[in-house]
Design a protein around this nucleic acid. Structure first.
Length: 647
DNA sequence: TGTTGCGGGGGAG
DNA sequence: CTCCCCCGCAACA
């Protein structure tokens, strides 16, 4: 009922856009348009409408009795891809012969049905990135596996690099039993390993089904993982319990290799910036005469220095942390073309004033489901009143967030959350947009051999600018996304009420946290959790929830920093500030941040109330259980929503 | 030592 | 009857 208007709105939108594209298609040569659309689709990833580029479905119905019966006939389309597939089926009205297999996907999340080649090694071995254990379903023909979640540190500790401990659990129950309670792999932490169960499938673990047929290996996944990814199996070292030293070393090595790869395959970027005196935008530009790298502290290798300037007018230093590139790769290397997967990568840019006298520090943290904790990925110290450092920071971010495999340069972030003033924001947006356009125009000119650049430039500009959305727009999008995904009207209404309450100024801290706890119980699934991680985080929250300000607890932090800051011999005279001075400050800042990590409300409540399981008494709803792969949907009588009651 | 897959069995709905 | 979970066992790396 309450869903109707929204669903209709979406439908209208879809039909409107498809009408539009149809119209264009008749006017312009189809192939060129498709190419162009594809190019644009890869640029604009946060566009509001999900059907900017109607991707040709790769899926066809399978005329095989068993698998078709069990895998393809479901009343409830759960996955975008599957939806696209069904549309094709109804449009054509006939069953078409098999043409293609799906490419193997290691990190399937959310409900999906795929068909792999019978010769696919990965499919034959039933490989998954998630830790999946075999479960008996008493059916010889269908192999069923369930997710065993992840192992986390009981003290929720943070490694010096800003990452959280996430250990891949053993598959066998006995071994896992032994793992739980072992010391946290972080040597400087006294915590123990804690099992975080997967409850992403209606309170049960996510399940995978495998069926081997002559015409392929059929795969189905049900549920969305409500926990972080464990280490991939192939990447797991033989001894997980090796010291944190090894972990860091390993990650640094990884970073170096990916760095090299990026260097080779990165798209050629047009350097329009007139080379400023003594300003260095790339490490390629660095030569031994410019910087004496041996003078940098040992933590800072030359690859981490993303740019600096020691101009008196414009002093800044921009650094990435060692793991940054690996983290970005982990987050953005997966398919992001599906517009419905909001919440993949958020960047949180915060400015800290007077970190040392006369200098501000801009740091960026990564918020993503795929990376636990909110590690700092980049930090820039810049002289107050100057812009170049900030612009450089954002440009370097945009470059880091683009996938090196693609020809077209396009940052893959869902949103940049920032605390810039309006004019700063404008400048920075301009810088990013210009950078993207410059590199893309080059590619597009090559591909389409355009003679006039101006119209192309204008269009690109509009597209890119509109993808950098405001808080409000983004919030609306999230809300719409959630509401359209929730299938039960009762729940939808409940959620709306809750959102209203939480957005209101009367919301108390207790309510805030307990609602969060309720959400983390698993009923609404990861979509809401993503939403919540985003809107409910302690740093973003002050702008959204009035009550959250009291949960942040900044005063002690600044006091401690004040003390630390006194330890520097940072010159008061800007003329005497050297690169060495600035890098010392940034590095100390990053170390300081890892010691005083702001715990998000979400993580805290997850850790404290993780014992709450749907079995416990609480609110009770009657919802229909989504259809199983093996029979028609059945009524699922009771589902208990866990709720923590405050005294 | 750990993974993978099979199968028996109990329990809830 | 379905579907959840737990357990032990055997083959294998």
């Amino acid at each position: 009922m309450s869903l109707q208007p929204l669903a209709k709105e979406k439908e209208d939108e879809v039909s409107r856009i498809s009408r539009y594209t149809d119209k264009v298609r008749t006017e312009v040569d189809g192939e060129i348009l498709a190419k162009f659309n594809h190019a644009l689709a890869s640029i604009v990833i946060t566009e509001g409408s999900p059907v900017w580029y109607p991707d040709t479905p790769r899926h066809y119905t399978i005329p095989s009795s068993f698998a078709r019966h069990y895998f393809l006939e479901s009343d409830r389309p759960l996955h975008e891809r599957q939806r696209a597939f069904q549309v094709t089926e109804t449009e054509t009205g006939i069953l078409q012969p098999i043409k293609e297999y799906d490419e193997f996907e290691e990190w399937i999340d959310g409900s999906a049905k795929l068909r792999y080649s019978p010769y696919s090694r990965e499919a034959q071995a039933h490989i998954s990135g998630w830790a999946m254990k075999y479960t008996n379903n008493h059916n010889k023909f269908v192999l069923k596996k369930t997710c065993v979640g992840v192992l986390l540190c009981s003290r929720d500790c943070t490694l010096p690099n800003g990452l959280k401990i996430v250990v891949r659990p053993a598959i066998s129950d006995k071994v896992r039993e032994r793992q739980i309670g072992q010391n946290c792999p972080n040597a400087s932490c006294t915590g123990t390993l804690l099992h975080r169960k997967c409850t992403g499938n209606n309170g049960y673990p996510v399940t995978h089904f495998w069926v081997h047929q002559e015409d392929g290996i059929y795969f189905e996944s049900k549920g969305t993982h409500d926990h972080f990814r464990p280490q991939a199996r192939r990447a797991t070292p033989d001894k997980i319990s090796s010291s944190k030293h090894n972990i860091i070393k390993q990650e640094t090595e990884q970073q170096e290799t990916t760095d090299d790869k990026r260097q080779i395959s990165a798209p050629p970027e047009t350097k329009k910036c007139k080379s400023r005196k003594r300003q260095h935008s790339d490490r390629d530009n660095l030569s031994a005469t410019d910087v004496d790298t041996s003078r940098f502290p040992t933590q800072l290798t030359i690859g981490l220095l993303k740019g600096y300037s020691v101009d008196e007018e414009d002093q800044f230093i921009c650094l990435t942390l060692p793991e940054s590139e690996t983290l970005f790769q982990r987050t953005i290397s997966h398919d992001q073309s599906n517009i419905s997967t909001y919440g993949k990568l958020y960047l949180l840019c915060q400015t800290f004033y007077d970190v040392v006298p006369g200098f501000n520090l801009l740091e960026t943290r990564m918020i993503s489901r795929n990376v636990m904790g909110w590690p700092i990925v980049m930090a820039t110290l810049y002289k107050q009143g100057t812009k170049e450092g900030q612009i450089h920071h954002m440009k370097a971010l945009a470059r880091l967030c683009s996938t090196p495999e693609e020809d077209i340069f396009s940052p893959k972030w869902q949103m940049v959350i920032h605390d810039f003033s309006a004019d700063q924001s404008q400048t920075i947006t301009e810088a990013i947009v210009n950078m993207i356009i410059n590199s893309q125009v080059q590619t597009l000119l090559k591909v389409f051999q355009y003679k006039s650049v101006s119209s192309l430039y204008k269009m690109l500009r509009e597209k890119i600018t509109s993808s950098l959305q405001s808080y409000q727009t983004h919030f609306e999008l999230c809300k719409r996304e959630i509401i359209s995904r929730l299938q039960d009207p009762l729940l939808t209404m409940k959620f709306r009420d809750m959102a209203d309450t939480l957005m209101g100024s009367k919301c108390t801290a207790q309510e805030y946290v307990s609602t969060d706890c309720m959400l983390s119980g698993g009923l609404f699934g990861s979509v809401i959790r993503e939403f919540w991680n985003f809107w409910g985080s302690s740093i973003v929250a002050p702008k959204v929830f009035s009550v959250a300000a009291e949960l942040v607890g900044k005063p002690e932090k600044t006091d401690t920093w004040q003390k630390k800051q006194e330890g520097f011999d940072f010159p008061d005279d800007p003329k005497k500030v050297t690169l060495q001075h600035m890098s010392d400050v940034v590095i100390t800042w990053c170390h300081y941040q890892s010691d005083h990590w702001p715990k998000s409300v979400v993580q805290e409540s997850m850790a404290n109330f993780s014992h709450l399981r749907p079995k416990e008494k609480g609110l009770c709803y009657t919802i229909e259980r989504p259809g199983s792969a093996f029979h028609q949907p059945v009524a699922y009588p009771h589902f208990y929503m866990p709720r923590y009651h405050w005294m």
